[in-house]
Simulated scan of single mutants.
Amino acid sequence: MHSSHLFALLCLLVWAPTPTNSWWLLSKADTSAPNTSPILCKNVPGLTPQQKRMCHDNPNVIKYLISGLRSALHTCEYTFQREAWNCTLTLPGVGTSPLQIASRESAYVYAISAAGVSHSLARACSKGLIDDCGCGETPQTIESAPTPSPYYSRTATGSQPVSTSDFVWAGCSDNVKFGNAFGRKFVDQYDRQHATEPRSQMNLHNNRVGRRLLANAMGRECKCHGVSGSCVTKTCWKVMPKFDEFANRLHEKYQLAKLVTNNDQKLFVRSTPPSGVSGRTERYVKTLEVSSKQMRNELIYLDESPNYCAIGVKDRECADNCHNICCGRGWRTTREIVDEPCHCQFVWCCEVKCKTCKKLVERNFCL
């Protein structure tokens, strides 16, 4: 590793987060040079011996693990860009509020980070970028014709075909099984060693939710084969959703996250009756263990969210949600002229030519 990269990583020690989430420091590591992951993991504070060993033994896998983590954090920031909490995770934000507060925001970050790792590894496997894994398992069930897929098609190669009534299972499915398995071994290491502690139980549960929702969200992607575009035969394989689409689904889970309590080293959530139910409320209140079937796909948290309006919002861009983001402190509007392509035309073959137009753009910033 270059000396400048080592110096930068050592500087992170000043802002080192708690060991619970120290593996997130890998998102700031430089991975451009070959065979750097063993050195990176050796110098990241707080990693467990098992995580360091996995880094040393699987340098190519760790590269895609880091890529998945970065994608998760970037997607988190994009998803929350118009909310009071905007997923501020850049150092020194990592390891400070809200992540040391066991809030619903922390629950979301853990879940999307775990899912981001799995997503990156699963896709890398199907593309043949990791030596230790290949295509995902070919489904063995007989299914009817697949619904149209919103995802881009890829060439069907690899797996042993399995016939169905309307298509053939073939191609190379995303290997989410490998992604989840490796991600679980690496990401969950610290919390598994502290599994009797409520916060670690919360983290492990939310990590599992992220991975499980990703696996459950896999859909079919198909390609037709025949003369002149006809669909004489159709091959299909399993693919994960685009990660931003998955993040939107996880955001819905964030909004419905359940507050839990600790009792005798176990986490429980109280299920209250739906609105409009009459009679004695306590008849309908029941306590669910977090590990129950009803809670398997639900995010959980231990603490209420902090007051994000107490955090400085000055100069934060607030788009069209300034009243909430700026916490009632007001905002200023700037106007600027920008160049953008316009009047684009397709020129045979194969070019798109555009003119350049001036456009007045307004931007809002908190006071």
Score class of each variant (00 low, 15 high):
51 Q>F: 00
2 H>W: 15
324 N>Q: 15
28 K>N: 03
177 K>Q: 14
183 G>A: 08
70 R>Y: 09
62 I>K: 01
182 F>I: 06
315 D>P: 04
198 P>A: 10
76 C>T: 08
275 S>G: 12
221 E>F: 09
127 K>N: 08
56 H>E: 10
186 F>L: 12
215 A>P: 11
325 I>W: 02
160 Q>M: 14
142 I>Y: 12
48 T>R: 02
294 Q>M: 03
343 H>Y: 06
80 F>G: 00
202 M>V: 04
313 V>M: 08
16 A>H: 10
320 D>W: 09
249 R>V: 15
288 L>T: 00
319 A>Q: 09
186 F>N: 02
194 H>E: 08
262 N>Y: 13
167 F>Y: 13
145 A>H: 08
222 C>P: 12
262 N>V: 13
339 D>A: 11
231 C>R: 08
284 Y>W: 10
98 P>M: 07
309 C>E: 01
120 S>F: 02
26 L>Q: 04
169 W>L: 11
58 N>L: 04
11 C>V: 07
136 G>W: 00
74 H>K: 13
295 M>H: 00
349 C>F: 09
277 V>G: 05
141 T>K: 11
10 L>H: 08
124 A>F: 05
73 L>G: 03
65 L>K: 01
16 A>G: 07
49 P>Y: 00
49 P>F: 01
363 R>A: 02
137 E>R: 14
269 V>R: 00
155 T>F: 13
245 E>T: 15
72 A>N: 02
